[in-house]
């Protein structure tokens, strides 16, 4: 029997997005918490490109090693995001690279993206519910 496509792709992707957004929230919270810590290097969680690649490329190549990057086709689950650290290069002050305004923007953006994913998931499940009840 063919699997229900509805659960297969979109719901799985949205689940992953929620997961990664929560991780991103933690990274941003850590940056803001350490806005006054001398020598702290802010981090950023980069996952959008990886997710896009995992989605868009249906290449059948199997990754043979656990450290190999997934080449699409069911790779969505394997996207973990990459942590990018950007040290302070201004050369003044206490070598803390956190820019609180930028972090607040990232926080707001992350929250909106998270909420839109929850809404999409809700609609998706709503459709399914509708089909179950009236179909």
């Amino acid at each position: 029997m063919k699997e229900i496509a509805m659960f297969n792709s979109t719901v799985g992707l949205l689940k992953k997005v929620l997961d990664l957004r929560v991780k991103n929230q933690q990274v941003i919270a850590s940056n803001i918490a350490n806005a006054d810590t001398p020598g702290y290097t802010p981090a950023r969680l980069d996952f959008e490109k990886d997710l896009q690649r995992a989605l868009g490329d249906p290449s059948p190549v199997r990754n043979g090693h656990p450290n190999h990057f997934p080449l699409g086709g069911g790779g969505v689950d394997k996207v973990e995001g990459r942590v990018i650290r950007s040290p302070d290069t201004s050369g003044i002050g206490d070598r803390n690279g956190v820019q609180v305004d930028q972090e607040m923007i990232a926080l707001a953006e992350n929250q909106i993206m998270y909420e839109s994913a929850t809404q999409m998931l809700g609609k998706k499940l709503g459709l399914l519910k509708y089909v179950i009840q009236n179909g």
């Binding site: 929230q25 919270a29 609180v100 929850t118 998931l121």
Partner: peptide, 25 residues
């Protein structure tokens, strides 16, 4: 100001958690 910024982060996390509870409603 730093205190305020962290309160905002907590509010945002709380809102995200509440939104997740609304999935499937």
């Amino acid at each position: 100001r730093s205190y305020d910024a962290n309160v905002t982060v907590i509010k945002s996390a709380k809102r995200m958690a509440l939104k997740a509870l609304e999935i499937g409603k």
